[in-house]
Design a protein around this nucleic acid. Sequence first.
DNA 1: CCCTGATTCGC
DNA 2: GCGAATCAGG
Length: 220
Amino acid sequence: MSWTDERIERLKKMWADGATASQIADELGGVSRNAVIGKAHRLGLEQRPSPVKPGEEKKAAATAPAAAAAPVKPAAPPRAETPARTAPAPASPAQSTAATGTPQRPQAELQYRSIGPGGFVRQGPGDQQAPIPPAPPRRLVPAKPSPEVADKTGLLDLNDRICKWPIGHPGEPDFHFCGEQANPGFPYCVQHCGVAYQAQLPRRDRRPPPPLPYGGPRVR
DNA sequence: CCCTGATTCGC
DNA sequence: GCGAATCAGG
């Protein structure tokens, strides 16, 4: 996905409105939170209360205080809205995480509700939330352990002392865990620790093909 | 652990 | 210019 004029406009607008980079990324789609932040900075728009910013200091800048013209900026947060607690704000279907069911940003005072391609509406605490459709009736039944996993180390067998190295892939019928004696202080046995923990090389010299397990790129 | 924005740097 | 990786605070 590329940065078309429209997408840049939306980015600017939402950024100015105080949406977080994640919200913007979700809304735009096809880009990561990092991409949004990177773009925002390249566009020059920034100056936002950052959790990591406020205390600005340099290590090597011990001397030469005169050189800097000392551009003092008040940096008054234009967004002075009081975080009025919104009563139970159910996530809209578009933004709910189906699998986990966990609301992603319940603390946000502004939500951007998509109204289709190219549009969204800002929704403040006072606004009405469209009623969410009731979930279809479901009866949950316990899964029966398949014979393949009978003797293997399953999720429920995990504890601090045994190796949690996954064998196979989640969802596969015989997915299980290593189950060996764990290396004390580590989640894996000695052997798997050797695979899991490797010296950090400079990015330049790193061998891309990452070690197992999983290895699949994160999918959204 | 989750979140956040900032920064770096290979591409 | 782009954005993943990383950093660092809450």
